[in-house]
């Protein structure tokens, strides 16, 4: 699915990371581990073609990523470490906007089930700005189900989550991989999620 070859990134004459190799097939999960400032987010953004690598290349479905960018973007969901939910709007408004702009086929009962599982069903009419950090993170992760794409690229998806939510994430990852999906995520530690490759930065 995605292959990263000898990737190095330099910013302001400072080497962030070098010689990163990664190979992600269908149903694979790769974790990027490292301390704060080790370059996890930079690597994810380089894979997303936002940051230009100084050396190395990235391939998507056998072709250079840059030449296959539209297909790559139509198959990837990216969740950043900060919330992209619109804080001035309600949870319901945010979900409706996501459903519309991502042209999602998900129906209302599926959304309802997902909200119940995430224990967010009582916050539907509440403004996102009033939710706690953990609740906002869970709402953000709902985008994975709404977008329904093959490749998930997640930056610190487990931060601010309680044990129940982490268990849910583990389960969601397993479900996604059983449907031939793939995941790259960054985290300081791995709370028992089965991964096929671990990259230490």
């Amino acid at each position: 699915m995605i292959i990263v070859k000898d990737l190095s990134v330099e910013r302001l004459d400072k080497r962030i990371f070098e010689n990163i190799n990664l190979s992600l097939a269908s149903s694979d999960i790769t974790i990027l581990k490292g301390n704060n400032g080790s370059g996890k987010t930079t690597l994810l953004k380089t894979i997303l073609n936002i940051i230009e690598p100084s050396v190395g290349s990235i391939y998507w479905k056998g072709k250079l990523l840059k030449k296959n960018l539209y297909d790559f973007y139509s198959n990837v969901t990216y969740i950043a470490d900060r919330t992209s939910s619109l804080t001035r709007l309600t949870v319901k408004d945010n979900i409706n906007i996501w459903k519309k702009i991502f042209l999602s086929n998900i129906n209302d009962s599926q959304i309802e089930t997902a909200l119940k599982t995430l224990r967010l069903e009582n916050y539907l009419n509440q403004k996102v700005g009033r939710l706690s950090l953990g609740e906002t993170k869970k709402l953000e992760l709902l985008r994975l189900i709404i977008e329904n794409k093959k490749l998930w690229i997640l930056d610190e998806p487990l931060s601010n989550l309680d044990e129940h939510s982490i268990e849910l994430i583990k389960q969601t990852f397993e479900d996604h991989c059983s449907k031939d999906g793939s995941i790259i995520f960054s985290s300081h530690q791995n709370p028992g999620i089965y991964v096929t490759e671990e990259i230490n930065l």
Binding site: L48, I50, Y78, A80, R82, T83, S84, S85, L86, T87, I101
Partner: peptide, 8 residues
């Protein structure tokens, strides 16, 4: 700031 530019 909230990353929506990247998502769009």
């Amino acid at each position: 700031e909230n990353g929506n530019l990247l998502i769009i």
